[in-house]
């Protein structure tokens, strides 16, 4: 049965804004402002949002690259920020990541063998031959052959480099891989190759993924559950089918409408006006009301409640409360 691998409870991350010589704090960037969700074993959860939505900050908190301001991240029902010693090492091994630009995530001075073997050497005792064999088998898993072992990142194409980064991520036999825009720096024809590879690896190695992206078009293929996030808060969450077939939040609908579609002529889509507001002073009430074409009075004053449309399909929007849904039905 599904058990929560990772549970995030009311996660907040505020970055202080410092000025002057002594770094006086004059305000906070509220990058993540109370986000809760979980990732179950064997599940692919997609965190979808634009830049400034806080999706990458959430990933960095999960990877222990940032310390949460408040809230809990539970792994095996233990708070990861409190982990020490063997438990910490175990968590490190279990949660790995693949980043957007493979050329930045691979050390330019190391060859492929060194890159993939580094984490392995650090956590397992293997002889040189065993290591070589293990790294070669990883390369094979990601669709590269042994001839790549002594190549340097700049000799690889974008797709090959991303495969190496994936090989490194699976080298420690993790349970969860955080994929931070894994294909958005790649060419379209290569994107699909990488997504297919990720889907295959998931089955083969029984992995879970947390996919972080702004591109809804790649999300449907791979994910079981989708979380739509805007300015540090969740707007809508549900199963992949529910979100794609019945998007409830105006923001979700607009995101769908923004995906370029070759078979649709220009002008047939809703264009979101204006820029996202600053996360230093997020708007009161619903965060999206400043750009929402359907905003009503209450949206500007009070935070929207959670509305359950099904067991896991939830939306945070006043328009879907019983009192208001009649006013806005179109």
């Amino acid at each position: 049965m599904n058990t929560a691998l990772l549970r995030i409870e009311d996660l907040k991350k505020y970055f202080p804004i410092r000025v002057g010589l002594f770094g006086k704090v004059v305000g906070y960037i509220k990058a993540v402002d109370g986000v809760s969700f979980n990732v179950d074993a064997g599940e692919v959860v997609s965190l979808v949002g634009e830049s400034g939505s806080g999706k990458t900050t959430i990933a960095r908190c999960l990877l222990l690259l940032e310390k949460p301001t408040s809230g809990k991240i539970l792994y095996d029902s233990e708070d990861i920020t409190q982990l020490r010693g063997e438990k910490l090492r175990n968590y490190r091994r279990s949660v790995q990541a693949v980043f957007q630009n493979p050329f930045l995530s691979l050390d330019p001075r190391m060859n492929v063998f060194q890159i993939i073997s580094e984490p392995v050497k650090n956590s397992m005792k293997l002889s040189r031959e065993e290591l070589l064999e293990y790294v070669s088998s990883l390369l094979e898993l990601v669709g590269l052959d042994k001839s790549f072992l002594d190549k340097y990142p700049h000799e690889l194409s974008g797709g090959q480099a991303q495969r190496v980064a994936i090989a490194r991520a699976i080298s420690l036999k993790p349970k969860l891989i955080i994929l931070d825009e894994p294909t958005s720096a790649l060419d379209v024809s290569v994107q699909a190759q990488i997504l297919n590879l990720l889907a295959d690896l998931k089955k083969e190695l029984s992995l879970s993924y947390l996919l972080i992206t702004h591109d809804l078009s790649i999300v449907k293929y791979i994910s079981d559950r989708i979380i739509i996030i805007y300015l540090g808060k969740i707007m809508e969450t549900g199963s992949s089918e529910e979100i794609f077939e019945n998007p409830l939040h105006p923001y979700t609908r607009i995101l769908f409408s923004s995906i370029p579609d070759p078979y649709r002529k220009f002008g047939e889509r809703v264009i979101l006006r204006g820029e996202p507001p600053s996360p230093v002073n997020p708007p009161p009430g619903c965060r999206f009301h400043t750009r929402c074409p359907y905003a009503i009075d209450i949206c500007r004053k009070q935070e929207p409640p959670e509305i359950k449309s099904s067991l896991i399909h939830k939306v945070y929007c006043w328009l879907h409360t019983e009192k208001h849904s009649s006013e806005t039905k179109t």
């Binding site: 990877l63 222990l64 490190r92 980043f99 957007q100 630009n101 995530s105 580094e118 650090n122 980064a165």
Partner: peptide, 10 residues
């Protein structure tokens, strides 16, 4: 990011 990757690898 490659420094982040090294941190993530522990």
């Amino acid at each position: 990011p490659y420094v982040d990757a090294a941190k993530i690898a522990g």
